[in-house]
């Protein structure tokens, strides 16, 4: 028997995952700035406070470090907190607890504890937030052993990945691109999980492989539609989870297509694309490449405010189309 499927928004799908986890398990609770009656800065927690009460949908003071530490301590001692940071940029204030404590406690203490913590944070540009409300910091967290890093693209995955993240016994950083909150897609009712170690092939194609997560996966799919009209068939792989990265799926695709383009919003250098490119260069798939690997990343600049500048600072559909054309036609 399969669950009925509805069209649901990305934010609603996340809220549904939170509600399911909280209804199933008393230990699960949500905390963060304005997650209560306000419903969250991006209306993700919405009406959860009415449904579960203030003890389980906890408004914190504007204390990102203190809040993160409280979440770590609660996770160590029997609760399962889902901590919302209002913008991923504010993780800079909570970094000590996430990186020095949550990520390391299990290892550092010889396996005697676990930290079942989820930190949710809206990421990315596109809403005029300027330099301190628009960053894409996924690579920072993906660099830290002990963390898992998730970035969903569809409402279906947002719900299933978040339920998997809450089930996970270790800290999971959950990035939600702001431009995706209002997107819609089919989402089954009830509980299901999307495993935290598997990429998804969003579109099959023979001519090149495009790897992109979150809103960049959507842009890559839009680009692939345009490319198809020109006779270029792009395969689009959505990693969904950036750490641990499912490189086997990427390598299999590259082995067939012989061309690889990686698209991501964070600054191009030292980013997610470098890791994926290097992993391919180190492996067997390298021998199948017919062209150099291409990366399309964010500009080496803080995210600017003015709309045309903001747009120019991160990869857009037309940039992906142009890069894919060059790659597919051997002009790279």
């Amino acid at each position: 028997m399969t669950a009925p499927i509805r069209e649901l928004g990305f934010a609603e799908a996340i809220r549904e995952a939170l509600a399911i986890a909280m209804a199933e398990d008393e230990r699960v609770f949500v905390m963060g700035e304005d997650v209560g009656v306000y419903g969250g800065a991006f209306q993700v927690t919405g009406d959860l406070v009415q449904r579960f009460g203030e003890d389980r949908v906890v408004d914190t003071p504007i204390s990102e470090l203190g809040g993160a530490g409280v979440a770590v301590g609660a996770a160590l001692t029997g609760l399962k907190p889902v901590f919302e940071l209002q913008f991923s940029d504010f993780s800079t204030l909570a970094m000590e607890q996430i990186v020095n404590q949550a990520a390391k406690l299990r290892y550092m203490l010889g396996g005697s504890v676990s930290v079942p913590l989820v930190v949710r944070m809206p990421t990315g540009s596109g809403l005029g937030g300027a330099a301190q409300h628009s960053q894409s910091l996924e690579a920072w967290f993906a660099h830290v052993p002990g963390l898992k890093v998730v970035e969903p693209t569809t409402p279906y995955d947002a719900k299933g990945l978040l339920l998997a993240a809450i089930d996970d016994p270790d800290p999971v950083i959950f990035f939600e691109h702001k431009l995706l909150y209002k997107t819609k897609g089919p989402v089954p009712e009830g509980r299901y999980v999307v495993p935290l170690d598997r990429a998804e092939t969003r579109r099959a194609g023979r001519d090149l492989t495009i790897v992109a997560a979150g809103v960049m996966a959507q842009k890559a799919l839009d680009a692939a539609t345009i490319l198809a009209s020109e006779g270029i068939e792009a395969e689009v792989i959505d990693p969904r989870v950036l750490r641990p990265l499912d490189m086997a799926t990427v390598a299999r695709s590259v082995t067939r297509t012989s061309r690889l383009l990686i698209v991501y919003e964070g600054a191009k250098s030292f980013g997610i694309g470098a890791e994926i490119a290097a992993a391919i260069a180190e492996g067997e798939a390298f021998g199948h490449l017919d062209a150099p690997i291409l990366r399309l990343g964010g500009a080496e600049t803080p995210i600017p405010y003015s709309p045309a500048l903001e747009r120019a600072a991160v990869p857009q559909v037309e940039d992906i189309v142009a890069a894919a054309r060059r790659l597919a036609r051997g002009e790279a």
Binding site: G66, G69, V70, G73, A74, N100, Q101, V113
Partner: peptide, 21 residues
């Protein structure tokens, strides 16, 4: 819950443990 290499690192963790209690 452990010694800590970060000055002040254990203080918010203690508050979290108290929240659990």
């Amino acid at each position: 819950l452990g010694a800590n290499g970060i000055v002040g690192g254990g203080i918010p963790i203690a508050v979290g443990a108290a929240l659990s209690a």
